[in-house]
Write a protein that binds this DNA or RNA. Structure first.
Length: 447
RNA sequence: GUGAGUGUAGCUCAGGGGUAGAGCCCCGGAUUGUGGAUCCGGCCGUCGCGGGUUCGAAUCCCGUCACUCACCCCA
């Protein structure tokens, strides 16, 4: 019998859970500081809610759930595991339009599922940490979202991340200006996105291989090469503005986002990147992607999606959001040893040793007193036997030591007679006998 | 969907045609009011699975599955 979890899924042992909770704690604390409110939605959505929102590639990766009952024979699916947190949010925004505030700011930390092939930092079940703001077209929204994400990463100890920034309308203005056929939009954007991997000549070759006219390819790459020579984002935007009159409003927004970000926690981390594409279908405006040098994928990403909610309600509502990948952050943090030492602390402050062969009640009573005092207490579950008391007691100390529990509490014969408890500091093996009534308070001063 | 690598004890891995190994873990002992070291002993295996070659396969060949990594795409 295979005892491993299903492909791409993971079990989280206690140490893993502590690390995950630590990161989630930082994320939610920061998000709340920006005025975002918590939301949770079901793991399962109606299939039609999800389909057609993510683009061709995304739709293929949706985990579908077969119909029950008579429908089971047909292999038809009517439900699906949620693929991201943005589409469920759009559904909620459409459904509760009247109940939600005019500007609805929510955060959501929940698992999503994708039928992808797993690899480093990529799983079939993973947590996204989303923040989204609904109801405003102001670029202040983008700036605050970028600030919140940058704030989270800084607080977790990341110092070398960058937020790549681009705009969907700038990309489409470019595609239109160069008369790229609609069916080639996606592959051309993907080719341009690879600039930092394959270089300018690589991109050029790729575009020519796709059958774009040489003149178009030259114009594109010449523009991008010129941008690479610019030393400020502003001059890049000037250049693009001249070449692509259709991109005026996108360029204006990018200018605002860059300027606003400079006065937030995101200062110094936002980088204009005209090659950033992003595959998800629903983005309409600014798009972001967060990266660190030694991770192939991204730490997070997001963008503006001003007509996704309209796909549900019929009435467009502007919206923008950003998502941090919990396990992406965890993978890098584990590699770089970024967890605070307190996270590896033991499960208990003190272990009650069972000294006698048949006085479990005495030990459990002591544990109860400790717990009432607020200590985290482990009772060694097995009492010694009459014929091997010593061996059993040795094992108890060894067990406490191995589990990293700092103190052991013992009531043996002299302690029983004197009404005291002996506290052993495992690390130093020093014993300290105290009146039973004082022990809990004493221990609390030591931890 | 494409490509590569790895599957041997609970864990980490060695062994590459001739009796299945080491370290760690676990259990017991040296040590009866006590422990991390040391020493001694013990437990632990369809060598991923199926087929083929061979007198003989963990080892060579074919297939298959699983995991890992990369591409694609993404968090």
């Amino acid at each position: 019998m295979n005892t491993g979890p299903a492909r791409g899924m993971r079990d989280f042992l206690p140490e893993d859970v502590r690390r995950r909770r630590y990161v989630i704690g930082v994320v939610t604390e920061v998000y709340e500081r920006y005025g975002f409110e918590p939301l949770e939605t079901p793991s399962v959505e109606n299939l039609e809610t999800l389909q057609g929102k993510y683009g061709e590639e995304g739709d293929r990766l949706i985990f579908k759930i077969l119909k029950r009952g008579e429908g089971a024979q047909t292999g038809q699916a009517d439900l699906a595991l949620r693929y991201d947190l943005t589409v469920p949010l759009a559904r909620v925004a459409a459904e509760y339009r009247g109940k939600l505030p005019k500007f609805f700011k929510r955060y959501q930390v929940q698992p999503v599922w994708r039928a992808d092939r797993p690899q480093k930092g990529r799983f079939r079940e993973f947590y996204q940490c989303d923040v989204d703001a609904i109801g405003s077209k102001s670029t202040a929204v983008e700036a605050e979202l970028l600030a919140a994400a940058a704030d989270v990463l800084s607080r977790l100890g990341f110092t070398d991340f960058t937020i790549r920034l681009n705009h969907r309308q700038l990309l489409s203005a470019m595609l239109e200006t160069w008369h790229v056929p609609a069916e080639q939009h996606a592959t051309v954007l993907v080719a341009l996105d690879k600039l930092d991997k394959v270089g300018l000549d690589g991109v050029k070759g790729d575009l020519l291989a796709q059958g774009l006219p040489a003149g178009t390819v030259d114009a594109m790459t010449a523009l991008y090469a010129a941008c690479l020579l610019c030393c400020t984002p502003e001059s890049v935007l000037d250049l693009i503005g001249e070449a692509l009159p259709a991109a005026q409003s996108a360029i204006g927004e990018l200018r605002e986002i860059l300027a606003l970000s400079a006065v937030t926690s995101a200062a110094g981390t936002v980088r204009l990147d005209l090659f950033l594409a992003r595959g998800l279908g629903y983005y309409t405006g600014a798009i972001f992607e967060i990266a660190v040098p030694d991770l192939a994928g991204s730490l997070g990403g997001g963008g503006r999606y001003d007509n996704l909610i309209g796909m549900f309600s019929g009435e467009d509502v502007p919206a923008c959001g950003i998502s941090l990948g919990l396990e992406r952050m965890l993978v890098v943090m584990a590699e770089r040893n970024m967890f605070p030492p307190s996270l590896v602390a033991s499960a208990a402050d003190v272990m009650v040793v069972q000294w006698f062969a048949a006085k479990t009640d005495l030990c459990l009573a002591l544990a109860t007193e400790f717990r009432a005092a607020g200590l985290r207490v482990e009772l060694y579950p097995e009492a010694p036997t009459e014929d091997n008391q010593k061996g059993a007691i040795v094992k108890q100390f060894q067990y406490a030591q191995a589990r990293g529990i700092p103190f052991a509490a013992v009531i043996g014969k002299p302690e029983l007679a004197a009404g005291t408890v002996s506290v052993r500091t495992l690390a130093t093996r020093q014993d300290d006998s105290r009146p039973r009534a004082d022990v809990a308070a004493y221990l609390k001063t030591k931890i």
